[in-house]
Structures are given as C-alpha cells and as structure tokens.
C-alpha cells in the first residue's frame, strides 16, 4: 500500500520577495537579482562567506533552502531540484569570456558553476547533508516526476525527508519554489497539492 507523505513547509522566491508557507518573510526594493539576493542573505543573518563566490543559480537555491532548513535537525534529506534554464546564466558568462581568441581568459570560478547540480553541493555543504540528490531540467515545472521520486525515496527509507522543487534563473528573470516532503506535515504530498502551492505565487 502506498504510504502517504506530507509537505512540511514551502518557500517561494520571486519578484524581490521571499515567502515561506505563503507569508512574506522578506521583501526588497532591489530590482536587480544580485542586489536582491545579497540583501536577502544579509536580512536572514546567514554566516557563510562562500555565498559570495556562488553563481546566481546557487545563490537562489541556497537562500530558498536555507529558510526551510535552518532549524531542521534531520540530516537525511534528499535533494530533488529542477529547472528550465539549467546553468545558462553561468554558461553565458563563461561563453563571453572565451568568445574572443585574442582575449581568452576563462574564469575557473565561473566555469565550476556551468552545471546546474552544483547548487545541490552548495546546499549539502551548508547543511552537512550526505544524502541522495538529483537535478532535472524540464520544459516546465513537473510535479509528477518530483513527487514520484520523493515518494520512492521516503517509502524505501532512502531518505527521511526530501527537499524538492524548482529553482530557475536566466537573463535576469528568476523564480524558486522549494518544499520539504516529510512523513508528517500540513499539506498532503500529492500532485494537485504541489501544483496548487507552486501556482499560489505566480
């Protein structure tokens, strides 16, 4: 029999605002992403200097995950994230640094972020997670795949919880929707419920 799991909490980040469980916890006047996400980092009083070395995708995933996991004692938390733009934001920066053969100086610090799953490593380092993780690139938000994967991991005791969702940034546009799946919680972990929560801040 299929076990039933729950959504413990969820977070949206879009349009210069961070929301947890539908309630605004930080809003900034900063329109540009890098200024906004730095303001969010300062606001939440996070002490993790490597944050400033991360690419934009990792910064977005890092802040969204931190507001959900900062008081979370469980460490066996799988990470199942997804997006549409992959690491294009960093890919474009890397490409621009190697486009001119006469001025060819690729930055190692940019290059290491030219994969979307690097953001999972940043989250794992911060929260000391040694758990299963996967990053999917979808055309659109796909609650079906995310929920199937999370249910499988929790049902087979491969993870106690799963941090799932969508974290996307390209050409200045960004949005994140992350949620924690657990064996106890407020919302039933179902595809309609995930889609409903995802759309609440569209």
């Amino acid at each position: 029999m299929q076990k039933e799991f729950y959504i413990q909490s969820y977070c949206h980040i879009t349009r210069n605002e961070v929301l947890v469980n539908g309630k605004s916890v930080f809003k900034s006047d900063e329109i540009e992403f890098t200024s906004f996400i730095k303001a969010a980092y300062k606001n939440f009083d996070i002490d993790h200097s490597k944050f400033f070395k991360m690419d934009n995708l990792s910064k977005l995933a890092f802040i969204a995950s931190d507001v959900l996991l900062k008081n979370e004692p469980e460490k066996n938390i799988a990470l199942i994230l997804s997006n549409n733009a992959s690491s294009l934001d960093s890919d474009r920066k890397h490409q621009s640094s190697i486009a001119d053969p006469e001025n060819f100086y690729p930055s190692p610090a940019v290059f290491v972020y030219t994969l979307p799953n690097i953001c999972l490593g940043e989250i794992s380092i911060k929260h000391q997670l040694y758990s299963e993780n996967s990053f999917f690139v979808f055309e659109n938000f796909n609650a079906d795949v995310l929920s199937t994967y999370a249910n499988s991991l929790l049902a087979d005791d491969k993870a106690e919880k799963a941090l799932c969702g969508w974290v996307n940034i390209d050409e200045g546009k960004y949005d994140a929707f992350l949620y924690v799946v657990a064996k106890k919680g407020t919302f039933v972990h179902s595809i309609p419920e995930i889609n409903l929560l995802y759309k609440t801040n569209e």
């Binding site: 070395k53 100086y105 690729p106 930055s107 190692p108 610090a109 290491v112």
Partner: peptide
C-alpha cells in the same frame, strides 16, 4: 584569507591576464 583551490586558479589567470 581562507582562499581555496578555485581561488588559486583565479590567481594564476590573473597573473597571465
């Protein structure tokens, strides 16, 4: 300063550039 291995590579690029 707590620099890491990626920072070392950046410094090598900086010397060249």
């Amino acid at each position: 300063l707590g620099l890491d291995s990626i920072d070392a590579l950046e410094l090598i690029v900086m010397l060249d550039k």
